[in-house]
Amino acid sequence: MAVDPSAHDTTKAPNAPRWGLYGRLSVGQKRTIWAWTFLAVPILFYVIIRFYPTGNAMVLSFQDWNLLGARTWTGLDNYTRLFSDPVFWQVFRNTFAYLLLGTPISLVISFVIAYHLDQVRFMHGTIRALYFVPFMTSAVAMAWVWRWFYQDVPIGLFNNLLATVGIPQVRFLNSTTNALPSILAPAIWAGLGFQIIIFMAGLRAIPRTFYEAAKIDGVSTWTVLWEITLPLLRPTIVFIVVLSSIGFLRIFDHVFNMTSANPGGPLNSTKPLVLMIYQSAFSSFDMGYAAAQTVVLFVVLLIVSLIQLRLLKDR
């Protein structure tokens, strides 16, 4: 490296550029270079691990492939087969049942708990931790514990309790009508802790003087809730609704683990779209068909999220 004699010239500014090309860049350009250096790794990762397979799956949905053989073009065959498959429509209904029951129920329960917990000072931290524990528990472990709850006498907890008070047995997981709500219950319970924490953060962010001003105006608790608290919680509600909707549309592990003898049963009454995709891909090895179902799920998720954002974010 040649030493520039002017570097020792004291008449020049002490921090005059002397490190070649990089040293001659402006502060803004240097920042850009560093930002892209750090961004490059995750971008590369996402392109290879996420975006490439997504595109590939879309292509695959127009092909026939059993994982080992050649991929052959079949046009729209996978989609026509899907839309004329009664199991698919059953699964489609199930998926929306999870969404349309799960999201509002979990939203209301978590808000009611957060709203009251916010006013409790006694053992506040402990109570909040108790609500958060299910969120940290593995879905598989939780599903198996609840599965035990739902068993018949003399094993299952719920039926034993019912038996002691003389109420007839309820067939939780073996009935086509009861199975879906029975699986939904632990799924809602699992997400509750997270939603409560988010709601409480939202409640805390509302300035106290808003409530004091309302108190001086003498409006009822109900009016305060509907006209002050809920409208000001709108961003929080949007966040929770979108997040929990995506969660319920993608429900899989609770269903799979609670009906593992006959996944999605009885008679497909609990089978969600993700489970159908799983079975098409890894039981039937019908990758093209699974890809077509995946594309449908992708479109559904996209539409539902966009509708919610539009509806709830309005102004």
Binding site: P207, E212, I216, P231
Partner: peptide, 21 residues
């Protein structure tokens, strides 16, 4: 007496006016 029954009104430092109304 509750604030509303005291025949008073208050103006707060941060105004306490509702942003969504």
């Amino acid at each position: 007496l509750e604030p509303k029954d005291r025949n008073i009104a208050m103006v707060f430092q941060n105004y306490a006016i509702y942003p969504h109304m």
